[in-house]
Amino acid sequence: MKVTEPNTSTVMPETSPPSLKLWQHNHILDLDNFTKDEIELVFETSNAMKEVLKREIKKVPTLRGKTLATLFCEPSTRTRASFELAAKNLSADVINLDAIKSSVIKGESLIDTLRTLQAMGADIIVIRHSQSGAPYLAARHLNVSIINAGDGWHAHPTQALLDLYTIHHHLGQLNGLKVVIIGDIMHSRVAHSNIWGMSIMGAEVILCAPASLLPYGLNDFITNCHLPPITVEPKLDIALKGADAIMPLRLQKERQQTNLLPSLREYIQLYQLNQERLSLAKSHALVLHPGPVNEGIEIAPEVAYGAQSVIEEQVTNGLAIRMALLYLIVGGKR
């Protein structure tokens, strides 16, 4: 919590609350350029948004007259619905463009599609694209705010923020926690953004996966980055010891080449998070999953729906996080 600094409490148009001097982002592309203070500001703003979500009338007039456009060039259930609802709760108007039904299939380029949305008056464009870097391209060519809702293997910053927020909410802080990410880390943009976010917040990240599912160049990354230690532990039973939060990932079959795993059955035997393995972690350990869940593969049903699972809460928190981000990037002259 920030307490108002002394002497800035001048009564302008009645009490002016502390202002957002530390927020510098026009776009949300990944978490690598976020500071700890900025992430904490997102948390604080999300707390206020969570209160709005508990009301009978879950709508505030903040973004009246603003337009949010979503362009999803890949399937999505929760992320798109979450952005749409977040915008509507803040009274913004929403246009959803489904790439499969739009001019994209007639050969229109991504930039042209986005320029059309800009010309229609969109203030924020939320993009999901199968190509890593597509939102960066958009941010360079357009004058609207771009939010990355997942680009290829690269990043999914809003999902990572909601994961961080959920852990922070339950355990009070992230600094010094041990977070284990299990499975298809190579193809998981959620894992990549989480590695940045967790590390910035001071958590220790342990990646647990067979070598074939770890990203290329991971060792160079670990040795060259000046973040808290990121370790690789291929044995799940060892990785889970003393864990505060555990995140099993879905095997992204749509992005994998064949032959990354000898067999699914072996993967389940070695890497599935089940109740017995969960008991190796701390007793308060949280189980997170970015969804969609493939029950019985990366996670056993009794764990996915068990007492330590916060998977459903992640979805609610995602709404609050996205409302907070929309509030933070829209409006205000910069």
């Binding site: 920030k2 148009p13 002016s16 609350p17 502390p18 202002s19 957002l20 001097k21 927020w23 500001l41 604080e44 703003t45 707390n47 206020a48 948004m49 209160e51 709005v52 505030v60 007039p61 903040t62 973004l63 007259g65 803040l90 907070a324 509030y327 933070l328 409006g331 205000g332 002259k333």
Partner: peptide
């Protein structure tokens, strides 16, 4: 009560207020 989400000068403010929880 926090009124940040209800201000009429949201778009014209030089910098926006930090939203705090209404409780």
């Amino acid at each position: 009560l926090d009124i940040s989400l209800y201000r009429d000068d949201f778009s014209s403010l030089e910098s926006k207020p930090v939203v705090q929880r209404t409780d």
